[in-house]
Amino acid sequence: MNKIMYFLRMRSVVLIIVLLALIAVGLCVKSSFLSILITMITYCIYALAYDLLLGYANQPSLGQSLFFGLGAYGMVLPIIYWHFGFWGSLGVALVVGAAGGLLVGFVAVRLTEAYHVIFTAVIASVMLLLANNYTPITGGSGGLSFQVAPFFSGWIKLTVYSIAANYFLVLAFGVAVFLLLTRLVSSPLGKVWVAIRENEQRVVSLGYNVYWYKLAAFVAASMLTALAGALYVISLRYVSADCFDFQWSVLPFVWVLIGGIGTLIGPIIGVVLFTLFQFYVSDWWSHYLILFGVLILVILRWAPQGIMGYYENIRTNKILKGGGEHAS
């Protein structure tokens, strides 16, 4: 047990060091690297939301682009048409994301595995079609650009046109989402999700109405995905129907898969790997995705549960070999 506590403490120390490093980077590093980090943190929120859905509540949705796009447009349209401020439109984006999640989830969570995948993917592609065709509202694939007025967060007046301010805003959301999910997955609600993933029928026999628990996970994930979409377009000051593109449904799956399903650190590792690859390898070869595909195969060949899963296996074996109190 002491060893487990030791590793837990180690983990928080590492996380605090990473956070301090990120703050230091925000204060002194040049802007082009900051924009990569902004993208990474936005992706991290998205990946964490997807991990909550797939890794904890066992729902393999392939339609998350729907909620990413809803968050993006939920953020932008109020700014353009009703001149909402940042917080107002962020609120709209989250509500729209959650409402979309509720509507789709109402049917989707009743479906298992392949049916869940197909249903969510179909709904998302219908939405992509609609977004491409309703150009007067969405701007289609040409997109819309917009201005974000400076806004107050606490006492500080922020403008996203300063890249450092933009970075710290996104970082604050990223840290908040990470802490929220850390707390959530160890709460009673989170434990029930894991139990449903492990053996749904048994959870029913333990007196839980699993439908509502699965729906709650779906809605929570949709809402966080919408947050990621909103932050993404805020940082770009541009939105287009591409936010509903199918790639936005596949990306979270890839991130979570290589990083490690069912851990909160895994998706972050997946995002960092993928984004670094995207930015640096694409510089010298535009077909970098082929290389990335090979990398995924290599990782999953030796670490079928992703990088974090691999690490945790080694760690558990070490604890057991070390002869801890509960070793068998």
């Binding site: 009673p188 492990e198 053996n199 029928q201």
Partner: peptide, 29 residues
């Protein structure tokens, strides 16, 4: 035996007690 393989023994029992306790929805306890 129809247990939840990836869940610890005490958590399996905990789930049952929690299901009756009516606070299983509480995100933070």
């Amino acid at each position: 035996p129809n247990v939840m393989p990836g869940i610890k023994v005490w958590e399996s029992v905990w789930l049952g007690i929690n299901s009756k306790a009516k606070i299983s929805w509480h995100p933070f306890v």
